[in-house]
Design a protein around this nucleic acid. Structure first.
Lengths: 335, 335
DNA sequence: TTGTACGCGTTATCAA
DNA sequence: TTGATAACGCGTACAA
């Protein structure tokens, strides 16, 4: 078995009776070093199983070739897609990905950021947790010269880099799909009212209805706290309305899953008595016997890819990069 | 806006007209430093927004407080559960997690290992890809003093640390469940024959049948390459048998999803004409209208947790830790 | 109680 | 073409 202390430049130099700097240059193919010397050095390096100590190099060049990715939870297929795209880009650029799941907990989020900062990541990609209100960390990171690019769940501020999906286009297509199929009573099961993404959904829901000459009735907008119980309760609220909706847009696919299950329990036939469209485009709808009518794709991989590209653009550019805002259009995908 | 060059110990020392070593000690609450000095130093550190440069510390102590996790794909809920458990343990110990997805590609796997080695991770947790045959990297890592703990998909070697799930117990329970419900013709849709995990399944399938006094007929064992088409083809093979099986154990939940869909297309009613059990315990079965009879839980989080604990035990112990082998029992979970 | 000196592995600068 | 030296930021043995 080999020794566990990896060889260093110094050792090579000693064995060859030349100076460490010569060795360093030879290994880096510096033009000033003679061919013979270079060969000898490389041969010896090979023999001694030399491997550059990256921690020393990182330290010296003040760069770790590491980016941190912070997201709510990998259990959501949306985020596992996103991080896969990010990892692919990072690998191309010879960067490594540090992982942090916030689990929608602002404290955890803060901790992860602190850890990443300690580890001197070169940059951060982040999708905010649902409960994050304090965004002061952005400035802290900025003052440490660690760029952040947000994706999917992004802050309102215009002075940050962000990549996200415009919900309005998908919502509009959803409403249109429902209307063209003759639905009169269209409801929205929305997330907690405290969420920006929820208020956006309500706004675009209302707008889409009006645009198509429909009335907006706020009785048809209910809210869930996104727990199973909350999802069922929201559905219950809609079911007891005098004119029960026949078409429902819901906050996301997870809500729809719960709601469909609830509906089944009530004897409501999905795809016949009641139709669903939700956000996210959960990959397994195709296996369901009675899937929703459609899902609104938000392109996690495109978002991750673009966010990563922006981050690397920032890292590779010497000048300050102006805050970028990239907006993808969400899109209705029929099932 | 603050400067982007974080303050160093030297600067604090200069401002306070004391030596850097005193500052260092004060910041680390070294007992020999006077209370007043300590206070002054800390105050100045605060003012200058001092943050220890971890890359320097990592470099010096030859330790990065980083572990690498290599797994096939986060899109499998099994692995996203596992990595979440790992991340939780790592966070406790103040370690950070570097992510690498192999996508079942041996070349990618090798690349990731090389990258992790360059980054001088303190240890590695790994679940092998389906196509990995060359395990020589284990010795290479060992010679670099980077411990590896395998989980779930582990090598056969007895000289490595590994945590995995014994498939036989779950298989036995599955067969028993089928038999007790009166099934005579029980089939197995297995993965590629080249996979160790597939041969294991066949062996335990056979064993369980014999144990219950049933004959083993290899016509009832078919193989799929795990693509959608392969899954359908395997099912087709079973359907054309003279005595069509009424109960099927399949390689994993993804295979079952495809197969159930196929069965539906053929007018076969799942849970009536045909019953399924598969490995993995995919979390969304509960939303399915006609779910499989049961799923065999393989405890990704327990596996991840245990593997991480072993790794930290190795990292924290000064002596060599003997190769550990932890085997969880898989367990049938009725749906 | 505090300061001096050194080293971790590498590379850039300057000198030879 | 090569070598000596310094520096990155920190911690610590040794000296005072």
């Amino acid at each position: 078995m080999k020794s566990n202390k990896p060889a260093t430049i110094k050792e090579i130099a000693r064995k060859l009776k030349i100076s460490p700097s010569t060795v360093s240059r030879a290994l880096n193919d510096h033009p000033s070093i003679g061919l013979v010397t270079t060969m000898r050095v490389k041969k010896m390096a090979e023999e001694l199983n030399y491997e550059p100590n990256q921690t020393a190099i990182f330290f010296k060049q003040r760069k770790t070739f590491t980016i941190g990715v912070i997201l709510p939870a990998l259990s959501e297929p949306f985020f596992s897609s996103a991080i896969s795209a990010i990892e692919a880009i990072a690998e191309d650029r010879k960067y490594t990905v540090l992982l942090g799941q916030s689990l929608d907990d602002a404290d955890r989020e803060a901790k992860i950021i602190a850890t990443f900062k300690k580890h001197r990541v070169d940059g951060i990609l982040m999708s905010l947790g649902k409960n994050t209100t304090d965004l002061s960390f952005v400035e802290v990171l900025e003052s440490s010269d660690i760029p952040v690019v947000f994706f999917d769940c992004v802050p309102e501020s215009t002075s940050v880099h962000k990549v996200y999906c415009d919900l309005a286009t998908g919502m509009d297509e959803a409403i249109e799909a429902f209307i063209s199929r003759g639905h009169k009573n269209i409801a929205l099961i929305n997330g907690p009212e405290t969420l920006l993404s929820a208020t956006e959904r309500t706004a675009s829901f209302q707008e889409a209805l009006l645009k198509h000459g429909y009335e907006f009735n706020d009785k048809y907008v209910v809210h869930t706290d996104l727990t199973e119980h909350g999802n069922h309760a929201a559905m219950e609220q809609l079911c007891v309305l005098p004119e029960r909706p026949s078409a429902i847009v819901s906050f996301n696919d997870f809500v729809t899953l719960d709601v469909i299950k609830y509906a089944r329990g009530k004897g409501i036939i999905v795809g016949q008595d009641m139709h669903f469209i939700s956000f996210a485009n959960y990959p397994l709808w195709k296996y369901m016997e009675n899937p929703p009518l459609a899902s609104i794709e938000q392109y996690p991989d495109e978002q991750g890819k673009k966010a990563a590209e922006i981050l690397f653009e920032i890292l590779e550019s010497k000048e300050k990069v102006e805050p970028q805002e990239i907006i993808f259009s969400s899109k209705l995908v029929l099932k």
